[in-house]
Design a binder for these strands. Sequence first.
DNA 1: AGCACGCCGACT
DNA 2: GTCGGCGTGCTC
Length: 805
Amino acid sequence: MLNLAKIIVDVPTMQTNEPYTYRIPEFLSDQLQRGMRVIVPFGNGSRKIQGIVWDIDYAGTFDGQLKDIESVMDLSPVLNSELLSMSKWMANKTFSFQISCILTMLPGVMHAKYQKQLKLLDSSIDNEDVKKLFYKSKIIDFNPEELENDILKNIIKLKRNNKIEIKYNVKNKAHAKKILGIQPIIKPSDVETIFKDVRKNAVNQQKLLTYIKDNPQEIIAQRYLCNKYNISESTIKTAIKKKWLIQTQIEEYRNPYKQKVERNYPLKLNNEQQSAVNKINDPIINSLDKVFLLEGVTGSGKTEVYLQAIQKALSMNKTALMLVPEISLTPQMSRRVKGRFGDRVAMLHSGLSNGERYDEWRRIERGEADVVVGARSAIFAPLNDIGIIIMDEEHDSSYKQDETPRYHTRDVAKWRAKYHKCPVVLGSATPSLESRARATKGLYDLIKLPHRINNKSLPKVNIIDMKNELINNGDEDFSDELLNAINNRISKGEQIVLMLNRRGYSSFIMCRTCGFVLKCPNCDISLTLHMDTKTMKCHYCGHEEQIPYKCPNCNDNKIRYYGTGTQKVQSKLQKLVPNSRIIRMDVDTTRKKGAHERLLQKFGQGKADILLGTQMIAKGLDFPNVTLVGVLNADTSLDLPDFRSSEKTFELLTQVSGRAGRAEKNGLVYIQTFNPDNYAIQLSKNQDYEQFYRTEMHLRHITNYPPYYFTVKITSSDVNESKAASKMFEISKILKAKLSNQTIMLGPSPSSILRIKNKYYYQIILKYKNEPNLHACLEYILQHYQKDAQKGLYVNIDPDPLNFM
DNA sequence: AGCACGCCGACT
DNA sequence: GTCGGCGTGCTC
């Protein structure tokens, strides 16, 4: 049979998580292909939804009544067979629906927009409210959420009596940008004759005719033509009237690159870099899937290694995919890659509008771009013939999606590399323990770059015990040493990076009389004082309220601010070092589009002395004039209740230290802490990753944590605390019964923040080494508890969670 | 997701 | 009896 197709429908439920069979109507039989989006009828009535063609020419086994595919939404497939099979693997791996995986692979504009309309069939309705709704038209948009309850009831009644019909529309948001083009329609040979009839002083028409003679039939953007030949729009209009040319629509890519980039060329590599490139080139040349872990200290020139490996892939007529954490996709980085490979580069990052993203995607899909640079979701770029996949800062937590489907970019990268038989390069100064452990086991090839380029020495790191400082000078934010160093650098005209991993002004306020702490009404978290808006803010749900001047509890006025955030440091620093120019960079100052770039650019141009920010300034910045880095409080990440807190702290301190002394001048780093003897802090002093790795691995080993164990986090959430809790206990019973006793279960227990946005969270952590039954068991749980989702009780499975919080 | 069906209590 | 609330199950 040739007239059937398997469709993955856009209904994310367990029961519909398999292809549905539809008939292919005659008029579509020629054009329908795998991987195209289609519109299909679904359910009773006239409901229509989007679907993806999973298979064609399929001998159906479904024995019910089949329906016809209604229409196709694409001229060519939007998913190739690689991405189609990957979606299936991914759904299985992340315990999510295949349609959810497919949609995360596609640019947002390709997700269908569903719109409902009401059509009046019989105008003799007597309900005044509904009549008013229709006013003068027969068809109106229908948004049940926006309507009052009894109007809605009346509409449903009228629908039952066939006086109103509900129309379902599936809208395609993917539109190519069209601009006005013109095309000459006269023969070049006729131009001479026409030319004679044109008045002598009609200069512009003559110009146009000359153009037509030289470029017969050629379609050109009207705007471009007018500019180039200095012809006005009215001349074109006349030409159309005289039937010299016709107007058409031509497609144009939205251009997100406003600035011109300067061409740059491969740099001379040192021996270490050259040997790294050679090792990576081998599997590119020989089409082998291989994973490299490129462990290079900050400033060791990893980026140049990446670029030259990409060059190799391109020279083999293959494509290249380079992934970077969103935050390090700075204009610096873009310029470097674009400057090297020019128009062959497509960029995918959050700064693009939906349309721009769609256009970059299509350039890749059409083969017009063969180098893709982007953040997490760029791993789904529709490249063919991939020759190399690079993941820079592979330890970065933004590579894991923190909503369903909870995929890790590294896993997808390895899958694609296997498919394309190409190498993956995981690069970092501080690899994740998982990756480093795999390298030790021989699963990955370890390449080390232990030296900075040009044999630049690593910055000198000083650890300052803030317990002493507090006793000596009474300041909990600035030690004398750091302050002196700041003054010294400013007087020399050098720049400073200061990190404080806490935004806002003060982290909480407390009444000194009764001990009351102002908390968020929706979350179990204290409110942070923000001075810019003069409000108390919740960093989890965004709740804002007035700053109380009296204690809401005991009415006393002894309210005090505790804990320092970036805002407070900024104003304090301004007083301590009055002539300094400070740029503050945190979520609050970078919320607007492009703000991130603007601030960095300003700092790079030397228009400020101090860059003060949260962890977002720790990565990838390369400013030659920065000679001093200060970490104001190294303990914030250390205090997190999570098994990865040491790893996070070491990583952050190493990364931020690496910002100092990257050019000729030597770098100096001060790390302020209340735990000066902590190993994560001590070892970051010499960027001693290997020693940190050994110490941390030992701890993970004796405490049974990853990478010695695999983990899964199961979370339940509900507005009712006891419902969330009891569901988790029920699940724990099932798990206990079904899993082997080698698997360790932590919990059920309340999540470390019990309540967020008025929902309570309970969780179970499973730690296991080998549990063949686990997958089926978790699938069973999902299936079993899906019906609760309608009542607002959600059960979530997070495989290999990045944290246990 | 969105819809219908069917069971139950409350009401004309 | 009938209306409408909600729990349940199905959609090729």
